[in-house]
Design a protein around this nucleic acid. Structure first.
Length: 228
DNA sequence: GCGACAG
DNA sequence: ATCTTGTCGC
């Protein structure tokens, strides 16, 4: 009772925003993250013009078989009627419920999860990756393809080059703009829950294959969008 | 009032 | 996110 609920997915926008403000302070930082054996990739897709939400999760074995090549340990998919429309800043209320259902179908519990979207690089520091991590008390990393908020310069041209993403009047560092592949638009990486930006960046770079997105997110994206 | 705006 | 053909490039 003393703790505010992390799971009321039926709040009006005004209440949802208030809840995000309360939860944001609980997104601790910097776990050691030793002994990681399973890394999950989480992403949501839609069917029938958005009427159906499709949550996908792919679990990869760590360490990789060879640099950038991972064994898929398990995959899970969950479909359900879409609950809310897309509202910038309130993405978790639209996607997290379905993501939780997909994660429930796993037989293995991942040690780390990469989520398609922002972590703390969010107006109230509680993007979808942070919210999901807080809910499951699981280390998470936000891996987004574009910017929600914050300011940044252009990262260097080499793979692995990055520049900080800052926000607020005091230039608070909320994430990093990472060049995951030469000649391609950069990725927006931010801590979700229980890890620092440096740790988040290290894991994303370590999971990079030959494409723009790190393998966990790339494979989950493929399953969510019913391709592959 | 105007512009910005993860997926 | 999704709707969609061809096309440029390794």
């Amino acid at each position: 009772m003393p703790n505010p609920p992390l799971h009321d997915w039926h709040l009006a926008p005004r209440e949802a925003i208030a809840l995000q403000r309360q939860l944001a302070g609980r997104v601790e930082r910097d776990d050691r993250l030793d002994e990681v054996r399973h890394i999950a990739g989480v992403d949501i897709g839609f069917e029938q013009k958005g009427a159906i939400t499709r949550a996908a999760v792919v679990v990869l074995a760590w360490p990789p078989r060879s640099p950038g090549v991972f064994d898929v340990v398990e995959e899970a998919l969950h479909r359900e009627p879409t609950r809310l429309p897309y509202i910038p800043g309130l993405l978790s209320f639209r996607e997290v419920p379905a993501a939780l259902a997909a994660l429930d179908r796993l037989s293995v519990t991942p040690d780390l999860a990469m989520v398609d979207g922002q972590g703390i690089a969010h107006p109230r520091r509680l993007g979808v990756a942070s919210h999901l991590g807080l809910w499951l008390d699981l280390p998470t990393i936000g891996v987004a393809k574009s910017r929600l908020c914050g300011r940044h310069g252009e990262p260097g041209p080499a793979r692995g080059d990055w520049t900080p993403l800052v926000d607020g009047p005091d230039d608070e560092v909320i994430g990093a703009v990472l060049r995951s592949r030469v000649g391609v638009k950069p990725l927006f990486v931010s801590p979700g829950h229980r890890l620092s930006l440096a740790t988040a960046l290290a894991w994303v770079v370590a999971c990079l294959g030959r494409t723009k997105l790190p393998e966990p997110t790339r494979l989950a994206d493929r399953l969510a969008s019913r391709r592959g």
